[in-house]
């Protein structure tokens, strides 16, 4: 995938944030949480041909904090951590199968949910949400990654 432009990614994340705010109240009834903005950003840096600058991740995180009314700094820290992890293992990922990569992303998403709930929802922290989200996200990513086999035109080069 070509490196996605800043403006394009900003717009995509903005739309993803709106989508997330619509979906989250419905999915939470089934104890499912999908951090769409975080996953889109993670996917963008994973697919990038170059290493992501720490400031890039930090500023995108701040932007998400601002538009999603999370505590300022929460997404900035998590985005920076994710960018560091993806950059560190970018070459190792090439040895991974898509199942392993799906599991990595669902694990990251679960970490994100757990970490953010420690700050915004400590009183009602639920391991059930983490567990169900982990399973749901893993299957969701597997389905999304398998779509390219059935619909080759959807493949992101």
């Amino acid at each position: 995938m070509n490196n996605i432009g800043y403006i394009k990614l900003l717009v995509i994340i903005f739309i993803a944030n709106i989508l997330e705010s619509f979906l989250a109240p419905i999915l939470i009834k089934a104890y499912i949480n999908i951090p769409i903005t975080f996953l889109i950003f993670s996917f963008a840096i994973y697919k990038s041909r170059f290493n992501t600058n720490a400031l890039y991740a930090f500023l995108f995180g701040l932007y998400v904090d601002f538009i999603s009314s999370s505590p300022i700094g929460l997404n900035a820290a998590l985005f920076s951590m994710m960018a560091y992890a993806v950059n560190s293992y970018s070459n190792t990922f090439k040895l991974f199968s898509f199942i392993q990569i799906c599991m990595f992303f669902s694990g990251s998403a679960t970490f994100y949910i757990g970490f953010s709930h420690l700050f915004i929802n400590l009183e009602n922290f639920s391991y059930l949400i983490l567990f169900i989200s982990l399973i749901f996200n893993t299957f969701l990513f597997l389905i999304i990654s398998m779509l390219r086999f059935y619909f080759p035109s959807l493949t992101i080069k």
Binding site: A54, G73, L74, Y84, S88, N91
Partner: peptide, 21 residues
Amino acid sequence: APTSGSKALYFLCITLSAFLL
């Protein structure tokens, strides 16, 4: 892979985020 310089920048960003939080 991140060099020691870029690692320091990551560390700085995460620390700054924690401070803002």
